[in-house]
Design a binder for these strands. Structure first.
Length: 453
RNA sequence: UCCAGAGUAGCUCAAUGGUAGAGCAGCCGGCUGUUAACCGGCGGGUUACAGGUUCGAGUCCUGUCUCUGGAGCCA
């Protein structure tokens, strides 16, 4: 039976007759035998396989090159040389699949740009193996966080017919041919359909029945955004809580970020070492910062005053009532507070219709959680639960109430105060690993002009 | 979409307007319980594409394409 290398290297004592299967990273030949480094993706480390030229299968050693797949039976023994605790003394070698000289991954380092052009092979590099293992473990940590707190994992639709969620350009889904706008009633769903840009509205419906829920699934934006932080297809995490106000929402967001930083620390220790060494020397310090520093909270109006008093010129001037620019957000968290900051109570006009109007009639119960190095990682709000006020909000934003009939219904029948937030899983990964480009935390990224894999 | 920068060997990069080079990878040989092994040799190019200036263009100009960084939109 196959033993994964992560388990093999954690062995406390020698083991005879183990089976290792994986991909060759490099081979070094010596007189009468060879060293073959094998990696199976179970961990960052390779196992050094010592292949004597006389064992069965050794006649194929010339083809055991970087990239080839092999199956090795051997004995795990202490390594007599420095560099590794254990090595596998092979008794039988099988070349499963050769990789000829055209195999594009070399032993030396490659640029991230080049690796993106071979997205199907880059998981075999140290960096991308580490990124995708981390992605898996953090996805698990997300579920663990909410499940431990009795949140119900809900699956909101990927295909939606509501084209007015206000979260960005949408991808059209259709089975029509030719002019798809001529007779949308003849389309598959009897109307225009799109890929979802957010599961929030549906999550609110489920929260108003199951109390605390969360979504964690794919989301799509057809924006022509060409930046290191945007993808057309990404995964979003959206908790929604009934009988909950903005303060409790902010509490949860801060607890969540701290928990994710701790999960990175505890569950991804080996890969974190690689990120720290080759990707971002500050990444470990940033995790400490998030886990240990108390989070700050500041109302939007006060944040604007802080920025105006900052005594420095921003590329974009600070305008009361306008969106905070990324440089403003980063100043607040990195320089002024030197801590993660939650900004709340934003002007009504710059936030969506579903956010709850505050008593002042000018601001809404919205919050953004800002962290150093990234800026906003979480955006959330208390939702408008008052029927009349929600209808007023729709009018205020020039939206048609009829388009939101079922959503408005939630306020008509047993409405409750409720709140939630959303965050992009990939942005979280970028923050926790230090990887600077969203295209490098997604195995096969979709960005404008790119879906070739 | 806007602004800036960059496209040279399979990869990473050099090359005052004057004969396109190195390291790595590959191939051949050597050495060695090796550690992104090491040593010697060999092959490897329509300098992104199209036009222009010039005696002469990888280098200067124009256009196109692609990529990267920043911005906007946002998560």
């Amino acid at each position: 039976m196959r033993t994964l290398i992560k388990h093999l290297l954690a062995a406390k004592e020698p083991r005879a007759g183990v089976l290792v299967q994986g991909w060759v990273r490099t081979r070094r030949d010596a007189k009468g035998f060879s060293f073959v480094e094998v990696n199976d993706g179970s961990c960052l480390a390779h196992v050094q396989v010592v292949v004597d030229a006389t064992i069965p299968g050794a006649e194929h050693l010339a083809e055991v090159t970087t990239g080839a797949s092999v199956s090795v039976v051997g004995d795990l023994v202490p390594s007599p040389a420095a560099g590794q605790q254990w090595e596998l003394r092979a008794t039988r070698l099988e070349l499963v699949g050769p990789a000829d000289a055209t195999y594009p991954l070399q032993k030396k380092g490659h640029s991230l740009e080049f690796l993106r052009t071979i997205a199907h092979l880059r998981p075999r590099s140290n960096l991308f193996g580490a990124v995708f293992r981390t992605r898996s473990r953090l996805a698990h940590a997300v579920h663990r966080f909410f499940q431990e707190r009795d949140f119900v994992y809900v699956h909101t639709p990927i295909i939606t017919t509501s084209d007015c969620e206000g979260a960005g350009e949408m991808f059209r889904v259709t089975t029509l041919r030719g002019d798809i706008d001529r007779a949308p009633e003849r389309d598959f769903f009897g109307r225009r359909a799109y890929l979802t840009v957010s599961g929030q509205l549906e999550a609110e419906a489920l929260a108003c029945a199951l109390s605390n829920v969360y979504t964690f699934g794919p989301t799509f934006r057809a924006e022509n955004s060409n930046t290191a932080r945007h993808a057309a297809e990404f995964w979003m995490i959206e908790p929604e809580m009934a009988f909950c106000d903005l303060a409790a929402d902010m509490d949860l967001a801060e607890t969540f970020i701290k928990a994710m930083a701790r999960a990175m620390w505890e569950d991804c220790a080996e890969d974190l070492g690689l990120f720290e060494k080759f990707v971002d020397r500050e990444v470990r310090r940033r995790l400490e910062f998030v886990v240990e520093r108390p989070f700050q909270r500041v109302p939007y109006a006060e944040a604007v005053e802080i920025l105006q008093r900052a005594g420095r010129s921003f590329e974009f001037p600070v305008e009361p009532g306008a969106h905070l620019q990324s440089e403003h957000e980063r100043y607040l968290t990195e320089e002024h507070f030197r801590a993660p900051v939650t900004v709340f109570n934003y002007p009504r006009a710059i936030k969506p219709f579903y956010m709850r109007l505050n008593e002042d009639g000018r601001t809404v119960a919205a919050m953004d959680l800002l962290v150093p190095g990234i800026g906003e990682v979480i955006g959330g709000s208390q939702r408008e639960e008052r029927l009349d006020q929600l209808l007023d909000n729709l009018r205020f934003h020039h939206l048609e109430p009829a388009d939101y009939a079922w959503y408005v219904d939630l306020r008509r029948y047993g409405t409750v105060p409720h709140a939630g937030f959303g965050l992009g899983f990939e942005r979280l990964l970028m923050f926790l690993t230090g990887v600077g480009n969203i295209r490098d935390v997604i195995p096969f990224a979709r960005t404008p002009g790119h879906a070739e894999f």
